[in-house]
């Protein structure tokens, strides 16, 4: 099996879909000749041509609106938004239309499409390139939201998203685009949407996270283990729908949860997770749920971004707080 980085997993997923499903196409800014600003679509334009890998004018509302129209008329578009911070011109199309076309037409037009966007910080990107606003989309009924954190999942989740009958926001943690390689099978395979990944098993605390914070959680779990604390680490992968079963089973076992995300705290996905745990596992809990998140400030320019993002030290402290409550 070929070893691939996360971004190569995405590329492979797109290539596989374009090869096997003639109704699939890719559209966005710089996705064609340039192969994407991060090279996610590298080589696809050469292979599949201008009608299936399409450089569009610079207009996000146009890109997503067009993708919805194409989906209505039977194609399976994969739209790329160059950075999540630039998705907002398309917000109307996503929230008002992609998300509720199925409801409004009572199932007649399901809007099966994928919107990919790199997101998150940690790469010293220019100002306004580092947002994590996933909860805006999780909060919108009708959308599914997924985030891979491994090359294998990147491909499998993308193919599942393309195959999915509903609109899927597919967010790519750009910090880990190239941070490690993994075996990724050839051909079509899917990682089901709605299923989390148990990164490691543990007994005392459940660390719940996704995206580029997964490796942080793993490191924090290692530090905790050195101190005799055993952490279970869950990579949600699917932010909506949530894998309630895995989350609740895990926290019932450990009785403690620390949620880690880059996005700001207030009304971030951590708040929803904490509420669900409260609703479904209250009697099993040994301590209140802890959240380690970005602060409730606009993502700072990169000189301060490491201070904004959850640090190992902050996760470590949260683990100790739930252990000593």
């Amino acid at each position: 099996m070929p070893e691939k980085t996360l971004i190569q997993g995405i590329n492979d997923g797109l290539r596989t879909a374009l090869t096997e499903d003639p109704s699939t196409l890719v559209l966005g800014e710089d996705v064609g000749k340039n192969g994407g600003v991060f090279r996610a679509t590298e080589g696809l334009w050469e292979m599949f041509g201008d009608h299936r890998v399409i450089d569009t004018p610079l207009a996000e509302a146009g890109i997503v609106g067009a993708a919805i129209g194409m989906a209505i008329n039977g194609l399976r578009p994969v739209a790329e938004i160059q950075f999540m911070g630039f998705i907002y011109p398309a917000f109307e199309q996503i929230v008002t239309h992609a998300a509720r076309l199925r409801t409004r037409t009572q199932g007649q037009y399901p809007a099966s499409l994928v919107i990919r966007a790199p997101y998150g910080g940690g790469i010293r990107a220019p100002e306004l390139h580092s947002d994590s606003t996933e909860s805006l989309f999780v909060h919108t009924p009708g959308l599914k939201v997924v985030v891979p954190s491994t090359p294998y999942d990147a491909k499998g989740l993308l193919l599942a998203a393309i195959q999915d009958p509903d609109p899927v926001i597919y967010l790519e943690p750009m910090k880990i685009y190239r941070s490690f390689r993994q075996d990724v099978p050839k051909g079509w395979f899917e990682v089901p949407i709605g299923k989390a990944r148990k990164v490691q098993t543990g007994e005392d605390v459940t660390l719940i996270t996704w995206g580029s914070m997964v490796s942080m959680a793993e490191k924090a779990a290692q530090t905790a283990l050195d101190q005799g604390i055993s952490c279970e680490v869950l990579d949600l992968r699917s932010l909506y729908p949530l894998d309630e079963e895995m989350i609740i089973t895990s926290v019932k076992k450990t009785g403690r949860a620390v949620i880690i995300h880059e996005a700001p705290k207030t009304a971030g996905l951590g708040a929803e997770l904490a509420a669900r745990i409260h609703e479904l596992a209250f009697l099993w809990m040994e301590s209140p749920v802890e959240r380690v998140t970005g602060y409730d400030v606009p993502v700072p320019m990169f000189a301060l971004e490491d201070d904004f993002r959850p640090s190992l030290q902050r996760i470590d402290r949260a683990i100790h707080r739930v252990m000593t409550f």
């Binding site: 911070g85 220019p126 100002e127 320019m301 000189a303 301060l304």
Partner: peptide
Amino acid sequence: GRVEGNVAPDGVRVLPPYVP
């Protein structure tokens, strides 16, 4: 990557770079 760089001196009516 330092936000101070966005601040123009008094009397210079230039806004910070518009990235989007």
